[in-house]
Amino acid sequence: MRKQRLPIILLLAYSLMAVGGVADEVTIVSDRWYPFNGIPNAPDPGYMIEMARYGLEQGGHSLNYQIMSWQHSIDLVRQGKKNCIVGAYKSDAPDFIFSDQHHAVDQMAFYTRINEPWRYQHVDSLAQQRLGVINGYAYKNDIDAYIKANRTSDRVIAAKGKYALENNLLALMQGKLDVVLGSRTVITQVLAKQQWQDKLQIAGYANTMSKIYIACSPNNPKSIQYITLINAGIEQLRKTGQLQALLDKYQVADWQHIEAVDN
């Protein structure tokens, strides 16, 4: 039923835009998380950015995509100083405005150096490992609790900045970390780009396949409108075949029929 209603919702949104004559510059922020979102103004800024831009522009808005740390992104969107974040689990910011349609799927994986015997079994198996994570990320309740409890020790290193993930992976290869936790989709592409595939391996998963969203500020009355436009734009792209072409460009699969849960 939702697929049948989306074009009506989209036409209504466009009509309201035309009557009001209001065109917004919608600012979406995040840390770099390619292929979901990459470098602003690059030819390949990330497929979630391209999807968001399409929907917003169809509604008469423009997109201003900015890169900053993940924690800073959440803080500014929560305050209403920026409009939306991209690449969010619901657990990242449960007070944000999420749609009932997710915009990607992913799974968090543990990485070790190649041929290391350690495997993730449960949170207790991390006890003797130096774990690399990214500041401000939400992973899974028990792992988040472990990270919080060990932040002041050398068992958890929380990287910050634009190259937090790459720095974690380098530290892992150099023996400064024992395990790195991160997005399987993102790390797969980083390893391929840097030709590190033969240096690191997956050593278990933190969660099942999880839903990822573009989420907007709880302090902006237009947040629902922005998400409605983005969702309607994605539906149009899917129906015309343009979405599949976009996903092929980024070497990812359509998430529509992949079983996933909210994390």
Rank of each mutant, 00 (worst) to 15 (best):
Pro117Tyr: 04
Ile147Pro: 02
Gln129Ala: 05
Gln129Tyr: 03
Tyr146Ile: 04
Arg119Met: 05
Ser69Thr: 15
Asn83Lys: 09
Tyr146Asn: 08
Lys140His: 13
Ala145Leu: 09
Ala158Asn: 05
Ala159Glu: 04
Arg113Pro: 02
Pro117Asp: 11
Ala159Val: 00
Leu165Thr: 11
Leu165Val: 10
Arg151Asn: 03
Cys84Leu: 10
Lys82Ala: 14
Gln121Trp: 00
Ser69Asn: 13
Ile114Lys: 15
Val86Lys: 03
Phe96Asn: 07
Ala88Asn: 07
Asp144Ser: 06
Lys148Leu: 14
Asn141Lys: 14
Gly80Leu: 11
Lys160Thr: 11
Tyr111Ser: 02
Lys90Ile: 07
Val77Phe: 08
Asp92Ala: 12
Asp144Val: 05
Lys140Pro: 00
Tyr111Pro: 06
Ser99Val: 00
Tyr137His: 12
Leu126Tyr: 03
Leu170Ile: 13
Ala145Ser: 10
Val133Arg: 02
Tyr163Cys: 01
Gln129Asn: 05
Ser125Trp: 04
Phe98Ala: 08
Val123Lys: 12
Leu172Pro: 01
Ser153Pro: 07
Thr152Gln: 15
Asn83Arg: 06
Leu131Gly: 00
Trp70Leu: 01
Phe98Lys: 08
Gln71Ser: 11
Tyr163Gly: 01
Ala164Arg: 09
Glu166His: 06
Lys90Thr: 06
Glu116Lys: 11
Arg151Phe: 04
Ser73Ile: 08
Asn150Ala: 08
Cys84Ile: 09
Ser153Tyr: 06
Gln128His: 13
Cys84Val: 09
Asp124Gln: 14
Asp95Ser: 11
Ile67Asp: 03
Phe110Asn: 05
Thr152Asn: 14
Val105Thr: 14
Ile67Leu: 14
Ile74Pro: 08
Leu172Gln: 01
Val133Ile: 15
Asn168His: 00
Ile134Tyr: 03
Leu126Gln: 00
His122Glu: 09
Val77Gln: 05
Arg155Lys: 15
Gly132Met: 02
Asn168Ala: 00
Asn150Phe: 08
Val77Glu: 05
Lys81Gly: 01
Asn150Tyr: 12
Trp70Asn: 03
Asp100His: 13
Ala149Glu: 15
Ala88Gln: 04
Gln79Tyr: 04
Met68Ile: 12
Arg78Asp: 14
Trp70Thr: 02
Gln79Val: 02
Val123Gln: 12
Asp106Asn: 15
His102Leu: 05
Gln66Val: 15
Leu165Gly: 04
Asn135Met: 10
Ile114Thr: 13
Gly161Gln: 02
Ala138Arg: 15
Ile134Arg: 10
Ile134Phe: 01
Ala159Ile: 00
Arg151Met: 10
Thr152Tyr: 12
Tyr120Trp: 11
Val105Asp: 07
Gln66Cys: 03
Ser125Ala: 06
Ile97His: 14
Trp118Ser: 02
Ile147Gln: 02
Gln101Trp: 10
Gly80Glu: 06
Ile114Asp: 10
Tyr89Pro: 01
Asp100Thr: 14
Arg155His: 15
Gly87Val: 04
Lys140Cys: 00
Ile147Trp: 01
Lys162Arg: 13
Tyr120Pro: 02
Glu166Ser: 10
Trp70Tyr: 04
Cys84Thr: 10
Ile74Thr: 13
Ile114Tyr: 11
Val156Gln: 01
